[in-house]
Amino acid sequence: MFIANQSNDIRTLTTAADGLGVTLPGSITTMLDHLREMQADQQPRPDLNGYTTDLATHLGDRAAMVKARKVAALDLAAADAHQRITGPLIDRCAKVVHQRVREARDEITALFATALAPQLDILNTEAGRLPAGFKPEHAADLDPALFEAWSRARDAHAVLRSARQSLAMFYRVSPDNLFTIEALLALAYAAPPKTFTDYTYAYRFARALAGIRHAGSDLGVLNTDGVFAPTALAHLGATFEWAGPTEVARRMQTITAAAVQPKTERVGV
C-alpha cells in the first residue's frame, strides 16, 4: 500500500505539472522518464501453451525436440527473471523518485508558484470586489460586472485548490480544532494579515479559510454558513500568495497564536 501511495503521489504531481506547464527539476525529469520506460517494459507471463504447441511439432524427432526444449527453457527463464526483477525494481525506483521529489519540495513548490501567478493575481484583483459574505448560489443576483469578477475568481480558485491537492505529498499537516481540511488547503494560497486585532478576528479568518461564516456568537459552533472563501478572506485582509510547506506552517502558527483567548476573558466561562 505504501508503494502504491508513493506511485500515486508521483503520478498526481506529474499530471498537475504537465497541466500547468511546470518543468520539474532536470534530474527528477530524467529519473521519471526512465521510470516510465521500465513501467512500459513490463511483460506478461509467457504462454506455456504456445511453447508446448511448438515443441509438439517435433514429435518423433528426438534431437530436434531436445534442441527446441533448450531454446524454450532459455526463453522462459529469461522471461521469468525479467518479470521477477522488474516489479520490485520499479517499486524501488518509485521510492527513490518519491524521496528525491520530497527533497526538492521547496524548489518544486516555487515552480508551481510561478505557474500559478495569474490565478493569484485574479483573486487579489477580483475576490474583494464581491460583497462580504457572498455565496456562490447568489451569483445570479450580481450585476454583469460583478458576475464577471465572480466567474474569474471562481475559476482561479478552482485551479489553485486543485494544484494544492496535487502537491499534498509536500504538506503533511492535519486538521485540528482551528483548521479544517479545507482551511489547510487554502493556507497554501491565502496569506493572513500581518496582525490580528483580537482573537475573534483570528477565529473568523480560520473559518473563512474553510469557506465558513458563523451566525450569532463569534465563537459559536452552530449556525454555520457556507460562503465563497476567497471573498471572505479578502474582506478579512488576506492576500493571495503561494506558499510552500515551511511558509504554510508559519501561517498556521501566526493564526493559532492570535486565536488564543486572553486569560482575563476566560474568567467565569
Rank of each mutant, 00 (worst) to 15 (best):
G128C: 10
D80H: 09
L76Y: 01
A110P: 02
Q119K: 07
A113K: 03
I108Q: 06
G87E: 13
H82F: 08
V101M: 04
A140F: 09
R102W: 07
Q119H: 13
H98Y: 11
F112P: 00
A81N: 11
A140P: 00
P88Q: 13
E103N: 12
D121S: 11
K95F: 09
T114A: 04
T109V: 05
A81Q: 08
A104G: 04
D80L: 10
G128W: 03
D121Q: 15
G87H: 13
A79I: 02
R92Q: 15
L130I: 05
A110S: 11
G128R: 09
F112G: 02
A117F: 01
A117K: 13
A113G: 14
R129Q: 15
L76G: 02
R92S: 15
R129V: 07
A78R: 13
L130P: 04
V101I: 15
T114M: 01
T125Q: 15
A127I: 08
H98V: 02
A94V: 14
N124H: 09
P131V: 06
T86Y: 04
D75V: 05
P131Y: 10
R102V: 05
K95M: 13
V96D: 15
A77G: 06
D91C: 05
I108N: 04
G133H: 06
L123R: 11
G133D: 05
A127G: 12
A94P: 08
D75Y: 04
A140K: 06
L111D: 00
E137A: 05
Q119G: 07
P136Y: 04
Q99L: 11
I108D: 04
R84P: 03
A110I: 01
L123W: 08
K135V: 01
E126Q: 15
H82M: 08
L111V: 01
R84Y: 08
L76F: 04
K135H: 04
R129E: 11
P136C: 05
E137G: 02
I108T: 00
P131A: 08
I122F: 04
V101E: 07
H138N: 12
R105G: 02
R102C: 10
